[in-house]
Write a protein that binds this DNA or RNA. Structure first.
Lengths: 119, 119
DNA sequence: GGGGGTGGTAACCGATTGGTACCTACTTGT
DNA sequence: ACAAGTAGGTACCAATCGGTTACCACCCCC
């Protein structure tokens, strides 16, 4: 019997909390590149090769609304806008570290089970 | 200057490795519910309230192809099919643990900064 | 005043994702 | 015989997500 007595999905499931803010193709990648410090709009656009300015601004706006990212206009010559992780945004760091460890682990498993053998 | 000398996105970025298999609205949730042990098709459909059978089978097939999930037909009365995490699938556990920690941390931050004050 | 770089906005489109409805095939229960 | 529950498959849609193209405003330099 595999069905009975499972940990009921709590109404505020940690996974749902996470996925609510980090979803879609770009948001994880944006947070990823902000891990290393503040970044300007154009920097991010180059980091995330392939993203359109439309989507980048849209995603940054939602991240701002969720208070994971702060936006700061620098009073510089051609006008620069700097985006950085807020304290809330930095809280996601453990997830990225876990992803790194998992990726390494997967690579090891691949090596171990010979590139053409399974089951 | 914030732009120069950033950690170049490695061709096989850990994040890309992760997102390659875990993407979309349902895959993370499927892995989440398989964390607790093997699960049958109908169980998963009830766990993931709202998923359609079409999408569930499709996602389980891709997870099987990526060897994160194993499929086993049980020789039972009405025919049951059991899905379970493979060793590769279990490797993702640290990510989910990190998500749990992050969610808790975020909840704490919310309490700390009073439900109506910011900036 | 033109060119280039900054950081966008708006309108339109295409691709991807997921949902609905309906179907099969098998087994159990009434 | 028939309903109901198991695990799907298929065809057709709807919504969401992201891309393309154009354009704007600002500033600097020449």
């Amino acid at each position: 019997m595999t069905s009975p007595s499972r940990p009921e999905p709590p109404p505020d499931c940690p996974l749902e909390r996470y996925l609510h803010v980090v979803s879609g193709a770009w948001v994880p990648r944006i947070l990823w590149f902000l891990r290393f410090g503040p970044r300007r709009f154009g920097d991010l656009r180059r980091d995330l090769r392939g993203i359109s300015t439309k989507v980048l601004t849209a995603k940054l706006r939602t991240l701002e609304a969720d208070r994971l990212v702060s936006r700061q206009e620098l009073a510089t010559s051609p006008r620069q806008v700097q985006y950085a992780l807020t304290e809330r945004g930095m809280a996601f760091e453990p997830v990225f570290e876990a992803m790194i460890r998992v990726s390494h682990h997967l690579a090891e498993l691949e090596e171990a089970t010979d590139p053409a053998m399974d089951r």
